[in-house]
Design a binder for these strands. Structure first.
Lengths: 334, 334
DNA sequence: CTGAAAGCGCTTACAG
DNA sequence: CTGAAAGCGCTTACAG
């Protein structure tokens, strides 16, 4: 394995000159430049990332923490993972991907050992145990999902309240006066998934303002429970003309469940939901929905994180940014 | 940030003694041990991973290369990613997760810069451009998927030939004499996805031996093309009584497509496929299928990789291991 | 435009 | 049982 010393020897210059030629941090004469390039090519030299990290105190890696709870729907998670990875690479960072069951311990481990320059937390809940250790870390952190205390961390999330209002408005405008709402599973609420109640509370509040009826129910996270649940809800709410589904697992199974029941959309029931374009494609979903924008959220989080890594002072105070929802009309409401 | 020198000073010992206390590589007196532990606790010291890596030439990280081709079905990929991450962590390794479009370049980058101790390649194709740079690397590599040249690398994959034979045998045993086979999309074959032809060729060979008819067709990777395709195939093969689906995207959409067409399974058509238990759960799939065992494959690959990292000599010659398929009867054939 | 030297934070023979 | 010192492969003031 060639080192910078080998390159220096072959090129007949000092190690510092090679280093500067590599970084471009000071000007090098054309001849020296050429000899160094030739030596690098001859030896197949690549800078040792660990040694550079030790000298510069920059690893050029960010940590990405993702957990796979059983009440969560993995395919939706993947959208965020992809966008974070892509954004990181584009900015020159590698991604240390951590899926430990003990998320708080993992945050502590990778930050205190200086394995990463910053950390992105996915699917952050209200009382997320990963948040405190991240706040205590030397490195900056960016969250996707809203914790109770956002101090010292940049937070990005979809505006779930506005999303709910947008969907209620949409259905109200079409004349619906009784709506079923399928929320995330009860476990998600218990675990502190704030997006659950942010959406539900806003929907209820909005419906109340219009004087229309809304029936909130918890969703299920797996088949066949999903089908059983939806059928029970539909049996109990026969006069409802529309359904808002705010749950990935349920909406993914919904076409099957409704077809089996003989419910035609939108003729018998209007359906509106919240998911990403890619998610909809993967599950062949035909529903009008608020775009959940995982690609945008991942990108924003990484960009802000890197900004803060590069210049902690200039990045300014931490932000809590809710991105505006966008309704994709796919004709499943009438 | 406390260093090992700070700990040594506070504990009143030398840095080497602290290091040995940490590693347990030589015995330390009880009293010294205690003073060091106290100093570590007081300072909140954690070993700097980069410095340790530089000194030991071990990063304790492995690279995981995954690509998201548009003709591939991301949810299936996730199964492998999860199992590799879990297995790595269990063995004390972190995962550098790389999704670069330029896979060959990424392999070169992370290996030549010594960012990882070994590399796992996912979804390896026949002429995979990532294989050559990995073979040329200092670090060992483990592949999931079969390349044309396996020299110097450990390879793990499902036995797709045996899987196909198992499914044909199963249907033949139930009396079927004309079978439709949906293979992966044509792009996958062109890209060199060997699992496509390994499965198809074996199925055709087996069917030929029994003297039964089999109609191979390419699948599609997205809706609505999947539905159009399946309908066209069923129109063209009206006398077929069974269908084998060897394509994630198609099988995921199949319940919808068949229900829309009014085809009941297994009454009108027997259906058998190949996917993992988790995948089936996510898509509510009711089909008898060969278990694709992503968890097992990921674990095997990582275990072998780590064995080779720890003792390259003792790990023996590289292996090509096809794991035996297992049929999960879910009652979709008759 | 270039070099010699110190330093990043560890580990590990070598000595005692 | 413990310490002093060299070394891992870089970067970057400091000097000229």
């Amino acid at each position: 394995m060639a080192t910078i010393g080998d390159v220096a020897r072959v090129a007949g210059v000092s190690r510092s000159t090679v280093s500067y030629a590599l970084s471009g941090k000071r000007s090098i004469s054309g001849d020296t430049q050429r000899r160094i390039q030739a030596a690098i090519a001859e030896l197949g030299f690549t800078v040792n990332a660990g040694a550079r990290a030790l000298a510069t105190a920059q690893t050029m890696s960010i940590g990405l923490l993702s957990q796979f709870h059983q009440d969560e729907f993995a395919p939706a998670m993947l959208q965020y993972i992809r966008s974070v990875c892509d954004a990181a690479r584009q900015l020159g960072y590698d991604v240390l991907f951590v899926t430990d069951g003990d998320g708080a311990g993992a945050v502590k481990r990778i930050t205190s050992s200086n394995q990463v320059d910053g950390v992105v937390l996915l699917d952050v809940t209200h009382a997320d145990p990963r948040v405190a250790p991240l706040r205590a870390a030397r490195q900056p952190g960016a969250l996707i999902g809203l914790p109770s205390d956002t101090a010292g961390l940049d937070v990005f999330d979809l505006d779930f309240g506005e999303s709910a209002r947008m969907l209620v408005d949409h259905l109200y405008g079409l004349g619906h006066r009784e709506i079923i709402l399928i929320s995330p599973p009860e476990h998600v609420f218990e675990r502190g998934g704030a997006y659950g109640w942010r959406f539900r509370d806003a929907a209820i509040e909005r419906a109340g303002r219009y004087g229309i009826r809304i029936h909130p129910h918890f969703g299920e996270s797996q088949q066949p429970a999903i089908g059983v649940n939806i059928n029970a809800v539909l049996d109990a709410r026969k006069s409802a003309t529309a359904m808002i589904v705010h749950n990935d697992a349920t909406v993914a199974a919904l076409p099957i469940v409704l077809q089996a029941r003989g419910v035609r959309v939108p003729d018998d029931l209007s359906v509106a939901s919240l998911y990403s374009r890619d998610f909809g494609r993967i599950f062949s979903l035909p529903y009008t929905a608020v775009e959940s924008s995982p690609d945008k959220l991942g990108r924003l989080a990484v960009q802000q994180l890197v900004r803060r890594i590069l210049d902690p002072d200039q990045a300014g105070p931490t932000v809590v940014k809710f991105i505006a929802p966008e309704l994709m009309d796919r004709g499943s409401t009438t």
